[in-house]
């Protein structure tokens, strides 16, 4: 799931200047490290941290909307549908919120490959389907 965060190239860090090692690398990305978008799949669940840290102004009003929508755990795809925004746009804002420590993200249950699949999970899904 987790992919190393965005790392600037030497040129980005210092404009090519070797002495630029002293420059904080992320000063050039608005002082922020970007969580990878790969952290957010369509069925990653996001949850607002409770209680929310004090915060009044958002870069976009949508940030506030997202926080309200994920007061309870909600999948990224659902958020995008409720916000009527493309998933790719929502994910960028989720990166902001994750970075600010305002949400947590839970990756989907891993099912790739034989080792991850367990009989309990399958049985549970089967039983659940049997009830609908």
């Amino acid at each position: 799931m987790s992919v190393p965060p965005y790392a600037p190239t030497a040129g980005e860090v210092s404009g090519g200047d070797e002495a630029g090692r002293l420059v904080r690398p992320f000063a050039l990305t608005g002082g922020r490290t970007r969580p990878s978008r790969a952290d957010f799949t369509l069925i990653t669940t996001v949850t607002a941290v409770d209680p929310p840290p004090e915060r009044t102004a958002w870069p976009q009003p949508e940030h506030g909307r997202i926080l309200r929508l994920c007061a309870r755990p909600v999948a990224v795809a659902e958020l995008a549908a409720h916000l009527d925004l493309p998933v790719s746009v929502v994910v960028i804002m989720l990166c902001d919120l994750l970075e600010a420590g305002l949400i947590t993200a839970r990756p989907p249950r891993s099912v790739t490959g034989a080792h991850d699949l367990d009989l309990d999970l399958l049985q549970k899904v089967r039983d659940g389907l049997g009830r609908i």
């Binding site: 799931m1 965060p5 965005y6 490290t33 952290d39 990653t44 949850t47 947590t104 993200a105 989907p108």
Partner: peptide, 20 residues
């Protein structure tokens, strides 16, 4: 700061597992 982005454990305890 950006290196601990994958599923912080505590607060997401209430979030369900998801499959598709």
């Amino acid at each position: 700061a950006g290196s601990d982005t994958a599923a912080p454990p505590a607060a997401s305890a209430a979030a369900p597992d998801t499959v598709k």
